[in-house]
Structures are given as C-alpha cells and as structure tokens.
Design a protein around this nucleic acid. Structure first.
Lengths: 220, 220
DNA sequence: GACACCAGTCAACACCCTGTCGAGTCCAAT
DNA sequence: ATTGGACTCGACAGGGTGTTGACTGGTGTC
C-alpha cells in the first residue's frame, strides 16, 4: 500500500496502473465527475458507482483506474496543494521589503487557492478523519508550510524586526492551524465563522500581533 | 428528526424512548462499551454489532436504546461539553483581577477536560465531516464559547486594558478555532503538533498578543 | 496471416454493514 | 387472568465495497 510518494514531488502513479494509452481520458473523466459531484453533495454521499457512471464506465472498471474512492480525492488534493505552493512562491524570502504586505500576500494567495477549490478542500477536511491516506498527505503538506513559516519568523527575529518569544515552530504550528480551521468554517458555513471578505484581514491581524506584537511591523 | 434540544440544557431524551426502567444499565453499558472501544480503534471501525455485543445485547436491541451509532457519540459528547462548561465556570467574569492568570486558567481547564476525554473528542472531530448531528451540536457549543470570549474581549477594551482592533467576534472565532485545531493535532499526534506539555502556554501567548498586543496585560 | 500479448471492460459474486419488521417474552397494574 | 408496555431478537431487505474470471480489440512478431 501507500505508493511511496517522494515528499517533494507528485505521486508517481496514484491513478493508472501502467503506461500511456487511451484510458487517460477515462481517468480524467473520473476526476472531472468527482469535482462536479462534489459541488452537489458531500463526498460520503458519492458512491463509486456514481463516479463510474459519470465517467461512462462500469464500477469494476473504475478499479482499473483508481484503487478506491479516496484515491480520487487524493489526486484532486494533490493538484490543489501544488497550486497553493506555486501561488505562495517566494513571498516569504522577500519579507523584509514590507512585512505586513508580504504576510498579507501569503495569506491572501492561500485564501484564493483554497477558495477556488473549496469543494475539494472541504471534502478532504471531512474525510481526513476516516481516510488515512488523506490524513497523511495533508500532514505532509502542512509540515512543509509550517517549516517555511518557522524559518520566516526566525529570519524576522534575527534582523530585529520581531521580538523573541515562543519557539518559532510552535508559533508556526499554531498560526497555520488557526488558518486551516478558520478557512474551513468560512467555506463550510456551519458554526461560527468569519465572513469571507474579512477573513484574510482577521487572520493577518492575529499573525502580525503574534509574531511582532504590533500590526505595523518595521520594514527594515 | 433532531429531538429539539434546549440550547443550554441536556438532551431531554436522545437515548431511551420512554420512562425509567431496568433498561437504564443497558444504555449505560452501550455508552461504556463505546468509550472502551474508542480507546482501541477509530469510530468508523466500530460497528453497531460491536457496540451491541459489548453491551451484551443483540443488534436490533441496540436500536431500542439509540437511533444510530452517531447518537451514542453525541451523548458522549454532551457529557464532555457539559464538563468543559462547568470547568470554565466564571473565570471570564474575574478577568480584571489578573488577566494573564485568568486566561491561562480558562485555556488550561479546557485542555484538561478535552485531554481527559481525548478519545471521545477525537472521534467527534473525525465524524463531524460525515455526521450532521455531531456537526450541529459542536457548532452550538462553539458558538457559546465564542460569545463568552467576545464579551470578555469587549470588557477588557471597555476598561482600557486592551486596545481596539478587530471586531471582537471575529477575534474570538479565530482564537477558538486555533485552539480547537491545535488541540486536535496534539491529541491525535498526526501531522505537525505542539507538544502536550507546552500547548497551553503556546495558545495563551497567541491569545494575549492578539487581544492585548503584549503578553503581560495590566491587572486593573 | 496466425499468434501471443496486453490494456481495457464488465456481469456476477461474496461480503459486510445498516436499519426495519414482526413475533415473541416478561412483568406490573388492573 | 388479562391487558399493555418494556424489552428482546431472528430474519430480511437494501445498498455499498472489492474481487474474479471471462471477454474484446488492437498491436507487434515471426
């Protein structure tokens, strides 16, 4: 099990079993069907038969392309996290230019990426409890972001812009965790949630005060 | 459906169908079995048959006591949230005495309560995605805590101890969300997590800086 | 052109779990 | 003794998952 993903790269072969062939479009059709159905109902209410019929194949044939329903979601999640990583880019290495603007950019870009694929993100959050593969992939992705933020905080402390305080890693974990949960509530719309148009500024404010003890950190 | 809980009180009759009788111990046995099995494996891997056999009854008889597996977890969750509410007590109305100490007390008491029932809390977090009842109850409970924190923040601003800033409700949502997610990671132990002995102080630090812009708010 | 091979396909099956129905048992109150 | 409600469970229906074994059609080989 668990096809040995390289931590940094894309899954070598989570979907199809072997080389190129005409079945590529079927695989894509399954993925597209999943995204479409996710817009209509929760992941748990979508059966493998729904996915197969939506892609114009029978249920056993589905198993030729994916080992399980969860693997489809995993592939979708891969795409989203890749996009988020690309969107984040090198924002954090240019922090000193204008810390407030750069942190805001980081949060806003993540917000835009997740918001653009909210059905997939929501579905992943919902099955994370029951699907070990999704849980593992998400943990891996989160770890990467935590490390990046941790390094950025240490950089800001080193150049004297941010005061010492909590271990940078603990702070990075807490802030990333907050974002995840707050976005989930905002996108899901159940329970207490921050309005979507305010959420970036709310998160930014907590990040800045936690890191700098002020909402207007010094530029250099 | 959804037996019309009073928002503040205990469920009138989520379990048994009617009045007192010898079946009380059976109901308790089901609950006890659920807690025991939850210590061994995730909620999704526990079948109704497991619960029934553990309580010494047959599967159909289970349905005499609870309408579904989820209802058992809901009853367990009710107990935990009641305990958490009791533990929190009136800490927030005595904030001005010593803000840092009182906030820490609040967070530490929640931590102790959740930590003491981590299996139940973890199970709830995991099925929240798929179980609408659990989702609704949790949203209800969270809303209550958010309101309490919101009022406390406004109180601190009114007495001049905390500066103006984000809308108090948004800040309360963000901080409560952070706690939830951070505790989850700490108790679950998968993915980036704060060490259990540090988690109260890490959370406290973020709360204080977000609310007061300092980790040492004024007493009065 | 006969052959082997392999990607791709699906009907049928075995299995597990949920929820319900109907027929029972036991006991307390009439 | 009878009635009615609490309580119990065997048996069934329904729906989901994952696997098996047989079939098809294209492609390269001798």
């Amino acid at each position: 099990m668990s096809p040995a993903r390289t931590p940094t790269g894309v899954a070598p072969t989570r979907g199809r079993r072997s080389g190129r062939s005409t079945g590529d479009d079927r695989e894509l059709a399954i993925l597209a069907t999943a995204e479409r159905l996710l817009r209509q109902r929760p992941f748990g209410d979508i059966s493998i038969d729904d996915l197969a019929r939506g892609a114009g194949i029978s249920r056993p044939t589905f198993y030729f392309y994916f080992p399980s329903k969860g693997a489809v979601l995993l592939t979708l999640l891969d795409r989203v996290t890749d996009e988020a990583n690309a969107a984040a880019g090198d924002v954090l290495v240019r922090l000193a230019e204008d810390p407030r603007a750069r942190w805001r950019e980081l949060i806003a870009r993540f917000h835009a990426t997740f918001g653009g694929h909210r059905d997939v993100v929501l579905a992943c959050a919902q099955v994370r409890g029951t699907n070990a593969e999704v849980r593992r992939l998400w943990a891996e992705v989160l770890e990467r972001w935590v490390r990046a933020v941790e390094a950025a905080i240490e950089g800001e402390r080193a150049r004297g812009a941010a005061p010492d305080g909590l271990p940078a890693r603990d702070l990075a974990i807490a802030l990333n965790s907050m974002n995840e949960r707050v976005w989930y509530a905002t996108f899901a719309g159940d329970g207490p949630a921050v309005a979507e148009r305010d959420v970036v500024d709310v998160l930014l404010d907590v990040w800045l005060t936690a890191i700098y003890r002020t909402t207007t950190p010094p530029s250099l």
